[in-house]
Structures are given as structure tokens and as C-alpha cells.
Design a protein around this nucleic acid. Structure first.
Length: 458
RNA sequence: GGCCGGAUGGCAGAGUGGCUAUGCAGAGGACUGCAAAUCCUCGUACAGCGGUUCGAUUCCGCUUCCGGCCUCCA
């Protein structure tokens, strides 16, 4: 089965056909680094990490290029730096590092290229110049603006007419705009703000142009997939399309547009402005990154996902079952097989991770029931290979189940004591030790053959 | 106000024009000194009202409710 993706541009599920199967290219809008990322910001990072892994599986790791930008010039950054009393550079460096730590803990691979807006000012200026030359842009009061009237297709992507945009406008329109929908490509910077020399004076880029310039610089004028959150469809992606296609003489921009739904809290979008957010690092302080990742993938990427304790509990429990089964076959080598066909088919169907989990559960159930070493090796191989595409199940089972247990020696000693008590049929003492350990969060499992395994329950 | 999405069993969450996933929780059983883990069995749910159809949870229309975008936003 071929990979299918829901394409926002056509609002339909389509078979994915890369422009060049030897060089599959994907661009995803990355973070603006002014503060710690929250778990809502983590969703696209995880979702597109899975897509990246899947594309690498299908086309070969060396044949996929994944670009995710870092926006390090922005008014929110300027405001935050001022409020913190630190330089913009300090703030963006510190925040970008924190972002990397956070998403690494969530099991995300580094993108192939991670360009920064401030490293692409020449490309941004060049693109604006091209737009000026073709009269898609104009100067007004120190700004350079994109003229939406010059682009007959403007608004088609997000499905809104210009009349609607004007009627629905809730912001005051700057008086120097030719059209209320025109947006800024370049704006002047006062001396206390970051700025670069340009043909239009010292200034800084508008929000949308950086993605157009960076995708062109690293992936070319036309590429395969462009991803981001649902809230970027308008205006950000609409504007990117307008800028890029107009700067490229109408040649096509991204072919498949993939958008993830929101993380919600009590049914409402998680957002900084609403104050209902959980920082990634807050979540990581409570559960392993793999639990958060699993929890995130329990819903289809396009649907809203409510973030709560119950979801995390379910994810933890599910992962425990997998690692328990893997521990049971730790003495058997995994067969060199790929993911199970059912699992792969589910992921290839527009990244249907819930259905993929169902396939994974089948594998788990079969593994628990398998009684020949050959079957166990094959199922273990399929389980691990499938897990690798989702970015889960790659840890050593013992490490997962026991954690960084500093009291391991003491626990093992208590278990030995209990085994002696059992051998002497002193079950009262055996149960006392079990209870003592249970209070400390250690769960015991007596195995056939007189061996006792243990794991952390919480 | 305009434009998009949603509504599935106690919960999470797929999917399908007829055979009605999967996980959690729950009930019963096997196993166990007791447990845990595992295995077996058990739940006909698809917002409401019309329509199309031999047959609709699945297609169409309307209604209700929820969320999102239209302003920074993943």
C-alpha cells in the first residue's frame, strides 16, 4: 500500500508521490524561541517526527530531507528579552537549547537541517527584492508590504475570499496599506531593536517571509510536504504560498500540506494566552518522555487531543505491557524483519496511529502466546521494528521497568529473603516483604521456576 | 457575522452501506500458597429528526451541541 496523506490544499486524502523519490523533501514550521515550549507545541514536533521516520522507512534514510526552522527574530522575542533583562541572542540561544532537550526527551530525531531566520537575512532580502521587481510588493512608510491584489489566487488555499477577510477583520487596518489584507514583508527597526541593513533601510523581516526564504534555500522552489499546526493555515501558510509562488513566477510551492490538530485542556485549545498550558519540561518531570510521546500518538494527528492524567496513565500502562513482554524474550534475538504489514498499512493511511497501535497490540498478544523460539524471534523483531517507526519501544526492558533504581541491591536482598520465607512456607513473612516493597512502589512477579521479577509500579 | 472541523459503548479511540476494531476500566474463568503478569470468555455504542436504500452508525438534508480560524499562535 502506498502512503496517503490528507492534503489541506485539496481537502482530500491523496496518494503521496514525491517529486523525486531519491530526494524526498519536507518543511515544517518550527518554534519561535522566546519561552519554554508547551505540550501543545510538542504535538507537531512528534507528529512530523513520525512522518519523517515513516518516509525514511519507505524511501531510505539518506533519501529524505526534513527541514524545521527556528524563528529567532520576532516581536515576542524582543519583548521577552527586554522583560528578562537579557540580550536577544542569550534568550534565543538558551530557549533553543531547552527546546532541543525537550523534544529529544520526547524521542524526536533531529531534522536534517534546522535553519535559523537570522542566518537567512540575505535570502529574505533577495526574495523581497524579487517580489518588488515583479510588483507583488510595494513600499509604504518604511515598510515593504505584499500586495494581495497582485495575486489572483490569494485566499484560495485557506478557503476565504478577500471580501470575507475584510468583513471579518477584527484588527485596525494600517492606513498605508493598499488593501486591508496586505501583510508586512519588511518592517523598520528602531535603534533599540535588532535590525539589518536593506534596500529599504535598517529593519527586520515580517513573520511569513522567513519560511518562504528558508524553504527555498534548503529545499528548492518546489518540494513535497509542508507541515504545521492547523492554526497556521491562515494567515501564515496562505501568505507563504502567495510570497513563494509570486517570487517564483507562479511555479508550484509545496505539494502536500499536512496540518495537525490542537492539544486541548478541558476541551479548549492549549495556549499561552489562555494560561492553560503545560510546559514540556513540567510533563517530563512527571513521566518519561516515551509516555508523553505515546499519549500524544493515541489520537489521530488531525483530531483534537485532550491532555490529562488519565491519558498519561493509559500510555504508561500500555508501554509497561510491551516492555514486560519484551523482557520475557530478552534471551531471544530479534529476527531481522521489518514492521508488521498491518502496522505499516495503518501508518501509511494518513498516519493512522490509533490503528497502528491496534496492530501493535496484535503483535504483543501474539508474542505473549508464542511458544516456539522462531515465532518469538519473529514477533519480537516485528514489534521492535514497528516501534522504531513510531519512535517507541527502543529502550532496554530492564531499564524501563526498573528505572534508575539506586536501591536495587536492597530490593534484591529483600526478594531473596522473601524467597527463603516462601521456601520455608512462611507465607506470612513472604507477604509482609511483598507489602513492604509494594508500599515503596515495587511490584513483584513470581515466575515459574522459582524466580521473582520486579519492576517499578509508578 | 463569515469560513472550517467534530459528535461512536463507563473512558480513550479506529472503522465500515449488511459480517459491528483496539486499549483501559468492569464481570466470570484458567494459572498462582496469595499476588502480579499472561491466556480464555463476556459489552450490538455510533447526538436528534427526516430522506436515499432490500438494508445506514457509515451516503444526503435539516436541527442541536462542541471546538477552531478570521489577531500572535503548533
Amino acid at each position: 500500500m502506498a502512503l496517503q496523506l490528507h492534503n489541506t490544499a485539496t481537502r482530500r486524502k491523496e496518494i503521496f508521490e514525491p517529486i523525486d523519490a531519491k530526494d524526498v523533501r519536507m518543511y515544517v514550521c518550527g518554534p519561535t524561541v522566546y519561552d519554554f515550549a508547551h505540550i501543545g507545541n510538542a504535538r507537531p514536533v512528534i507528529v512530523f517526527d513520525v512522518l519523517f521516520r515513516l518516509l525514511r522507512h519507505i524511501h531510505g534514510a539518506a533519501r529524505v530531507r526534513y527541514v524545521r526552522n527556528i524563528t529567532d527574530i520576532d516581536d515576542k522575542i524582543n519583548a521577552a528579552a527586554k522583560a528578562n533583562g537579557e540580550s536577544i541572542r542569550e534568550l534565543t540561544t538558551r530557549t533553543a537549547e531547552a527546546f532541543h532537550d525537550d523534544v529529544a526527551a520526547l524521542g524526536c530525531l533531529r531534522p536534517t537541517i534546522e535553519p535559523r531566520a537570522t542566518d537567512h537575512i540575505p535570502q529574505i532580502i533577495a526574495m523581497i527584492e524579487a517580489l518588488m521587481a515583479s510588483e507583488h510588493a510595494y513600499r509604504a512608510e518604511g515598510h515593504v508590504l505584499f500586495a494581495v491584489a497582485s495575486d489572483p489566487d490569494y485566499g484560495e488555499f485557506s478557503g476565504r475570499s478577500r471580501d470575507e477577510m475584510i468583513a471579518g477583520a477584527r484588527v485596525e487596518v494600517a492606513p498605508y496599506k493598499r488593501d486591508p489584507a496586505d501583510f508586512v514583508l519588511w518592517k523598520p527597526s528602531p535603534p533599540d531593536l535588532p535590525g539589518w541593513d536593506s534596500p529599504w533601510g535598517r529593519g527586520r523581516p515580517g513573520w511569513h517571509i522567513e519560511c518562504s526564504a528558508m524553504s527555498e534555500a534548503h529545499l528548492g522552489e518546489s518540494f513535497d510536504i509542508h507541515g504545521g499546526g492547523l492554526d497556521l493555515i491562515f494567515p501564515h501558510h496562505e501568505n507563504e504560498i502567495a510570497q513563494s509562488t509570486c517570487a517564483h513566477d507562479g511555479r508550484p510551492f509545496a505539494r502536500y500540506w499536512v496540518h495537525n490538530g490542537f492539544v486541548t485542556v478541558d476541551g479548549e485549545k492549549m495556549a499561552k494566552s489562555l494560561g492553560n498550558f503545560r510546559a514540556i519540561r513540567e510533563v517530563l518531570a512527571e513521566v518519561p518522555g516515551e509516555v508523553a510521546r505515546y499519549a500524544m500518538l493515541m489520537s489521530h494527528y488531525h483530531d483534537p487531543l485532550d491532555w490529562n492524567e488519565d491519558r498519561l496513565g493509559q500510555a504508561k500502562h500500555a508501554l509497561d505491557r510491551y516492555y514486560l513482554a519484551l523482557r520475557g524474550v530478552s534471551d531471544i534475538g530479534a529476527a531481522p524483519t521489518g514492521p508488521s504489514p498491518e502496522f505499516l498499512a495503518a501508518l501509511e493511511d494518513d498516519l493512522n496511529t490509533p490503528l497502528a497501535f491496534a496492530a501493535l497490540h496484535d503483535l504483543l498478544s501474539d508474542l505473549n502466546k508464542a511458544d516456539t523460539p522462531a515465532d518469538k524471534a519473529r514477533l519480537k523483531g516485528e514489534l521492535l521494528a514497528s516501534g522504531a517507526v513510531l519512535g517507541i519501544l527502543q529502550q532496554a526492558p530492564e531499564a524501563w521497568l526498573k528505572g534508575q533504581e539506586e536501591e536495587a541491591v536492597e530490593i534484591e536482598a529483600l526478594i531473596a529473603q522473601r524467597l527463603s520465607a516462601r521456601a520455608a512456607r512462611d507465607f506470612a513473612e513472604a507477604d509482609r516483604i511483598r507489602t513492604e516493597l509494594a508500599i515503596r512502589g515495587i511490584l513483584l512477579e513470581d515466575k515459574p521456576g522459582g524466580k521473582t521479577e520486579w519492576r517499578r509500579a509508578v
